[in-house]
Each structure stands twice: as structure tokens, then as C-alpha cells.
Amino acid sequence: MIILGLTGSIGMGKSTTSAMFEAEGVPVYDSDAAVHALYAPGGAAVAPVEAAFPGVVVDGAIDRVRLSARVLGNPEALKALEVIVHPLVGSDRIAFFEKAAAAGKDIVVLDVPLLYETGGDKRVDKVVVVTAPAEVQRARVMARPDMDAAKFAAILARQLPDAEKRARADFVIDTSQGLEPARQQVRAILQALRHPERLDDGAEAAH
């Protein structure tokens, strides 16, 4: 079973691309969704995160806005949070892979926003980077209701530059041309992985 890492900076269209892989029948492990579940009422992260950052739990769940305010721009606080959350996500991810293997899936996608930043690229077989021009990225991000320039800058500061991600990727998907071209790139990548002897030109190999 091929583990395909999917990553991309904020606003590049990664979530939409992830859904395209799912539409092609490829199981997708969404690390953000896993964290949401851990932060929800009854989630395994609620108690330890509240112990480390008192006051971030509201109505039995971790309030991500409050937590973000505590860790953004604070490397020590962020590291403390990662020490709690990463092992929990890791256990969940292993269970997901085991289920996919048992179902006979030949490819699974590991959707991780900070794949390179956390060293996650070492745990996958190939990496797809989702990209778009900087002006498209900024327009998408700034259109979000909870976003401002300072928050956008803080998020970008945690992420490798897009150019570096593209340079390190096995495949690159450009989402700036619309949904159908992106969907064709997804299909071409799956074809290339399943039949490497006839690499489709539609999959933009990064190397």
C-alpha cells in the first residue's frame, strides 16, 4: 500500500484537492479532522490540553480560537501542545492505515498541512504539494471571515515557503486553473503511482 503525503500552505486548495482523492476512491486521513475530534467533547486531548493551557476548554471542548491565541507566535507553547497532541494523532493514524490495508486499498492519502515542517515526509512514500500563485493564495485566505493580515503572517511564518515545498515534492498540483484541471492532475498522479512505467504527462512530476 502506497502512503501518499498531501500538503500545501494555507489557501492553496489542499482541502479541495483532498476531497478529489476521496472522490477517486482513495482513503484520506485528514490530520486536521483528527485533531478536531480529539478537541471535541469527550476527546482524548481535552483534559491534557486544558491542564497545560488552563482556560481553553469551553462547554467540554477545546476552544481552538483561545488555544490558538496561546500558542501562535510562542514556540515553547506550541511545542508543549505538540507533545500532547502528536502521539494521539499518531495512534489514530495507524488504526486508519490498518483499516485501509484490510480493505485491500492500494493507495492512501495522508493529508497534513505541516508535513515537511514536522518531518512527516519521512513517513510517506511520495509527496504531493498543492500550490497556487501567491496573489491567489492571499486573496483566498484574506476572504476568510476569521482572518486578518497579522494572523495570515503568523501562519505563514510556521510554514515552509511554497517554492521549497514544490522543490521537494514528487508531484505538484496547481489549483489556480480551476476544479477540472486539478481533478485531472489528481487522476494523473494516481495513474502514475499505479503504473509508473507509463507516467502520464498530466501528472506534473516535480523531479
Score class of each variant (00 low, 15 high):
residue 2 I to A: 00
residue 5 G to M: 00
residue 7 T to R: 06
residue 8 G to I: 11
residue 9 S to F: 04
residue 9 S to A: 15
residue 13 G to M: 14
residue 13 G to H: 12
residue 17 T to L: 10
residue 18 S to V: 12
residue 18 S to T: 12
residue 20 M to Q: 07
residue 20 M to G: 04
residue 20 M to Y: 10
residue 23 A to D: 04
residue 23 A to R: 11
residue 24 E to D: 09
residue 24 E to S: 06
residue 29 Y to C: 06
residue 30 D to N: 14
residue 32 D to E: 13
residue 33 A to S: 10
residue 34 A to E: 07
residue 35 V to A: 04
residue 38 L to Q: 04
residue 43 G to L: 12
residue 45 A to H: 13
residue 48 P to Y: 08
residue 50 E to Y: 11
residue 51 A to I: 14
residue 51 A to H: 14
residue 58 V to Y: 07
residue 65 V to N: 09
residue 66 R to C: 11
residue 70 R to W: 03
residue 71 V to Y: 07
residue 71 V to M: 07
residue 72 L to P: 01
residue 74 N to V: 15
residue 75 P to Q: 05
residue 77 A to K: 11
residue 82 E to G: 14
residue 82 E to W: 09
residue 82 E to C: 07
residue 87 P to G: 08
residue 87 P to F: 10
residue 91 S to V: 14
residue 93 R to L: 12
residue 93 R to V: 08
residue 93 R to P: 08
residue 94 I to V: 15
residue 95 A to V: 15
residue 96 F to P: 01
residue 98 E to T: 13
residue 101 A to N: 12
residue 101 A to K: 09
residue 103 A to C: 06
residue 105 K to D: 05
residue 107 I to Q: 00
residue 107 I to L: 01
residue 107 I to S: 01
residue 110 L to T: 00
residue 116 Y to C: 09
residue 116 Y to G: 04
residue 118 T to F: 09
residue 118 T to Q: 12
residue 119 G to E: 13
residue 120 G to S: 04
residue 120 G to Y: 04
residue 121 D to T: 07
residue 122 K to H: 15
residue 124 V to G: 00
residue 125 D to K: 01
residue 126 K to L: 06
residue 127 V to K: 11
residue 128 V to N: 03
residue 129 V to M: 01
residue 130 V to T: 06
residue 133 P to A: 09
residue 134 A to W: 11
residue 138 R to C: 02
residue 138 R to Q: 11
residue 147 M to Q: 03
residue 153 A to S: 15
residue 153 A to F: 14
residue 154 A to P: 10
residue 155 I to R: 00
residue 155 I to W: 01
residue 161 P to S: 03
residue 161 P to R: 10
residue 162 D to G: 06
residue 170 D to S: 01
residue 170 D to A: 03
residue 170 D to P: 05
residue 172 V to N: 00
residue 174 D to G: 02
residue 176 S to T: 12
residue 177 Q to A: 15
residue 182 A to D: 03
residue 184 Q to W: 07
residue 187 R to L: 08
residue 189 I to T: 10
residue 193 L to K: 06
residue 195 H to R: 15
residue 196 P to R: 06
residue 197 E to Y: 05
residue 202 G to K: 06
